[in-house]
Design a binder for these strands. Structure first.
Lengths: 134, 134
DNA sequence: ATTATATTTGCAACAACATTGCAAATATAC
DNA sequence: GTATATTTGCAATGTTGTTGCAAATATAAT
């Protein structure tokens, strides 16, 4: 578990392990509110700095849907301090409100006439598998 | 110009016309900061309420790229109080920092195994046409 | 193992962004 | 022109995130 921090060149501290633990206990993306609830006594400044470091080092990434609270999720192993390289897309279920990182069935190829696209980010909403079956 | 408000069932007031004017004067998406700069004397509460109303009624939409300031842009005519129905995607130029609403060359078809997708939002970054030619 | 160095933490203060309640003002409907 | 519902402006407050700094801790060097 601390290997994950070491692998991304993040110094290991008690607090960072606790924050990482929150991400690992939750299958899907988590909000800052969730993190704050699951950490017992903590300093908000340190939390924000920790999250910033985690993002910079390629350990977690933000999921930002319009008019929605910011969510955070663990990155693919391909992400490093040199940049985030995600293949997945994001999905928010309007029934259970969970935010998923999922592989699309066909890899989308997005282009705009005359423009050079370097990064693509896809956010979707709908109803997830479990809620459809329920 | 006030027809646009009428068409979206938004009561016409001086303040709302001024805010709408900012959107119409700017070709691309604008930040709240930009709106505040272009409005002379105004009340921030009223501005936030106005923007919320505009979004709810389908006149403008948010463009939220991760780790970026929230941007706002006029909607397609297809958007109403019953929902936003955009065909376009968003593009932020890393050279000029403009945020565009653009039609993609091929309409992307996004699907996730077992999930029902109702809305898709695509945000891209790169270099825009003008900056490529410059 | 001990020390040196660099990074991280916790606290207080603050800045930016956004919301609520309420009385006065204004827009639309009659 | 009046009645009714909505919008505005103000003050207060909430939420989210940042800065500076001294003390504490993690890693690197010996």
């Amino acid at each position: 578990m601390s290997d994950l921090l070491k692998h991304k060149s993040i110094r290991i501290t008690d607090f960072r392990l606790k924050v990482l633990d929150v991400f690992e206990k939750n299958t899907n993306a988590v909000s800052i509110k969730t993190i704050e609830t699951e950490l017992a006594n903590f300093d908000r400044t340190t939390l924000f700095r920790t999250l910033k470091t985690f993002i910079k080092k390629g350990l977690i990434h933000e999921v930002q849907l319009p008019n929605e609270e910011k969510m955070l999720a663990l990155c693919d192993v391909t992400c490093t301090v040199d940049g985030h390289k995600h293949e997945h897309i994001h999905f928010k279920c309007e029934t259970c409100n969970e935010v998923f990182c999922k592989q699309p069935e066909v890899n989308p190829n997005i282009s705009i006439d005359g423009f050079l696209i370097k990064k693509v980010e896809i956010n979707t909403t709908g109803i997830c598998k479990d809620c459809l079956l329920a």
